[in-house]
Amino acid sequence: MPSSPSHHRVPSDAPFYAIVLTIAGAYVALIVLMLAADIAYTSPNEMLEALRNDNIRSSIRLSLISCTISAILSVWVAVPIGYLMSRHQFAGRNLLDAVLDIPIVLPPLVVGISLLILFQFLPRALREAVVYQVPAVILAQFVVACAFAVRTMRATFDQIDDRREQVALTLGCSRMQAFLRVVLPEAGQGILTAGTLAWARSLGEFGPLLVFAGATRNKTEVLSTTVYLELSIGNLEAAVAVSLIMVTAAVAVLIIARLWGTRSLAV
């Protein structure tokens, strides 16, 4: 005989929340402890010393410039590709989708080697202007960062109701006008997220840079290669100090983007 509703004993929710919170807490603790260990290992003096080092200052400058250029390029390319993938069905779409994910799944060193080999087939003047030069830094960062930006923009356009665009078409817009005046403004937060992600991704890029741009001091050295170069000469303190500079830069960009994004949405 079925028991009456009042006698049905529902198990406590506590174990569920205990499991979820334990898993989440363990991961968050790992992130925080990693950063805390970095901070504990170095001192403000060591960070200031790192900032006074000409090589490191040059590396910071190139990192800021190259990451910003590659983030802007990534968004520039990701917006039309993301829109195309989100809105249109066409032959070969699944294949294109897979191709767009290749930079994400490819081992970083392979990205670098592939770029290096690609430029062996290109005119010598172009090769000499790019490979092991600053443009190689930007291109290596862009190839990977753009793939992440494309994913973000595609998800952004997926979330924008395409009927708004259809209404714009009936109101007299061409496709271009509907895109620029209705879709793009609605994608503002997604563009910001894609740009931030691309910037942070570019900052952390290392493998392709090492192979394709090299790690020449005062030339193609960016912060990630600085960490590698300092480690390779046994200067762990400087490596940790530069790592903390990278963490600070990444967190600053994240916070600025979040604040900007929140403000732009607060209509």
Binding site: D161, R163, R164, Q166, V167, A168, V182, P185, E186, G188, V267
Partner: peptide, 9 residues
């Protein structure tokens, strides 16, 4: 269209 599809910006 159904629900208006207003432009959020």
């Amino acid at each position: 269209p159904q629900d208006g599809a207003l432009f959020s910006t």
